[in-house]
Design a protein around this nucleic acid. Structure first.
Length: 477
RNA sequence: GGCGGCUUGGCCAAGGGGUAAGGCAACGGCCUGCAAAGCCGUUAUUCUUCGGUUCAAAUCCGAAAGCCGCCUCCA
């Protein structure tokens, strides 16, 4: 069973073969830290976190680099607006990003380089480009990459430089040799942060940091480079130009790009005012629900965030946890040494371009099968059934380490959910227990009208009662 | 204008030459005092439309319609 990866560079799925046996070098474009992260950032991060976990599971020694862009026009703008130091701004959003990603069960990458800590490497990189005549310094101004010096420009995005020149919307800078040339080094205006360089006091352009830092940590070429679809052009196209212009060889073997998150079927945009921040989503839903939502569609497809879709996912996750709880109550123990059919199916899905959507479907199928076994056995399975169910449990647990969900013990999961409901609705649980007791008494006396009345009352507060052999339990819908 | 993608049951969605996964919803049954939960069953002879290739197409090719993204900061 071999891994297949959709490579944006060739527009098709390809068999994955790492450049160096047993090792994977992976670089993912992280956020520009000038503002709070939104659900779209979360998708990218969670998707690549899952990919990182899968490579690790496959036995590769993975070096995973995810950068922070902490020098940029937008940061400077914010600094000017707020009077805050750029560093204070970037640190604030880096901390926030870390907190939110930790909450979402995202593993920390091997390295998280910041552009500002690699200025020297960036300058050296630009110098190499100038030395090779791939870049030029405009008198008294910026340093640009020369598109015309790189014949393969456009290979990733399938764009033809000549077509783009014709349709260029960008105001042409007279000093540029070609309108498509992009800045490697920008001269500082008064009041802007700057670093000394052979071309004067200034700061790096956006694209160069990724070429310089990936070189620093992963070398001249590496296996995987990822990011959102929107980065294909111009960001990744420009990275290829920079890196391949300097080193000659192939920069990245496999380019992976994730699709967008829409909000109620609309693109997230400032004009629509529908930017949905991770912190808002975390207030409304548990981290595992969010992760499951983000992984419930194929990573390249668009995904729509809405109350309805979140509720659906949430109900599905409850069902999986209910199954796990049922397994535990039936005395099923985990024996991590064994893998079953579910794991095989899941692996097949993941090996087919990280198809987490299908992987989750496999889990649901197992839940259905497992529930059937438990029904048939009246929740007291014999040894044979016990063994089969134990495999289910093992597999779900193994999957949870890849998808980063179903990680909690079911009792805590439901308790947390209950606690959150209690908190959100300002309900006193003892009051509920009291009503349940009243209902139990009514039922004993065959006063079903009263019993149903109490149940309806609770239901109107989204509290559902479940009568079981061991009494009545309640949960929030 | 250039480049790319999408269109699968009521809704969401996987698949992408061999005869339609999964979730949600709905309905019927088992269970229950009645429910809920869980289970069982039912819900696409068909994958936007029209042509073509093939023994065989939702899957490949061509055309049309609709939707969307990128080309400007963007995950």
């Amino acid at each position: 069973m071999s891994l297949k990866v959709y490579n944006t560079l060739h527009g098709k799925k390809e068999k994955f073969e790492s450049r160096i046996e047993g090792k994977v070098g992976m670089y993912v474009c992280g956020p520009t830290v000038y503002d709070t992260s939104h659900i779209g950032h979360a998708r990218s991060v969670v998707v690549f976190d899952t990919i990182f976990r899968w490579f690790t599971h496959l036995g590769y020694d993975v070096k995973y680099v995810r950068n922070f862009t902490d020098v940029d026009d937008k940061i400077i703008k914010k600094s000017n607006e707020t009077g805050q130091d750029c560093t204070a701004i970037t640190q604030k959003y880096i901390d926030e990003f870390h907190n939110e990603m930790d909450a979402l069960n995202v593993l920390r990458p091997s390295v998280e380089p910041k552009a500002t800590e690699h200025i020297e490497h960036i300058i050296n990189f630009i110098q190499m480009l100038i030395d090779k005549d791939k870049a030029y310094h405009v008198q008294g101004g910026d340093v640009y990459f020369s598109i015309d010096s790189f014949k393969d420009y456009g290979m990733l995005s399938g764009r033809n430089p000549d077509d783009m020149r014709a349709g260029a919307r960008i105001a042409v800078d007279e000093k540029k040799k070609s309108p498509l040339d992009f800045a490697l080094w920008k001269l500082a205006k008064p009041g802007e942060p700057f670093w000394e360089s052979p071309w004067g006091e200034g700061r790096p352009g956006w694209h160069i940091e990724c070429s310089a830092m990936s070189y620093e940590y992963l070398g001249e070429g590496f296996d995987i480079h990822g990011g959102g679809k929107d980065l294909i052009f111009p960001h990744h196209e420009n990275e290829i130009a920079q890196s391949e212009a300097v080193f000659g060889g192939q920069f990245v073997k496999y380019w992976i790009h994730n699709g967008f998150v829409d909000i109620n079927n609309e693109k997230m945009s400032k004009s629509l005012g529908n930017f949905t921040m991770i912190k808002e989503v975390l207030e409304a839903y548990s981290p595992e629900v969010i992760r499951m939502f983000l992984l419930s569609n194929h990573y390249r497809s668009p995904i729509d965030y809405s109350e309805g879709s979140m509720r659906e996912v949430s109900i599905g996750l409850d069902r999986i946890y209910s199954f796990l709880e049922r397994l535990e109550n039936a005395g099923i123990k985990i024996d991590a040494s064994q893998k079953g059919e579910l794991w095989d199916d899941f692996s097949t899905a993941m090996n087919d371009d990280f198809n987490s959507a299908k992987g989750i479907a496999c889990v649901f199928e197992a839940v259905k099968k497992g529930n059937r076994f438990l029904d048939d056995a009246n929740d007291t399975p014999d040894q044979d059934t016990l063994n089969v169910l134990s495999l289910f449990y093992n597999d779900v647990k193994a999957i949870s380490n890849i998808l980063g969900m179903f990680l909690l013990d079911p009792v805590s999961y439901f308790k947390a959910k209950k606690d959150k409901g209690v908190e959100d609705m300002a309900i006193d649980p003892s009051q509920i227990e009291d009503l349940i007791q009243q209902r139990t008494n009514a039922r004993k006396n065959k006063n079903f009208a009263k019993a149903d009345e109490i149940r309806d009352l609770l239901q109107s507060k989204n509290i559902t009662l479940e009568d079981g052999p061991e009494g009545t339990t309640w949960r929030f819908e």
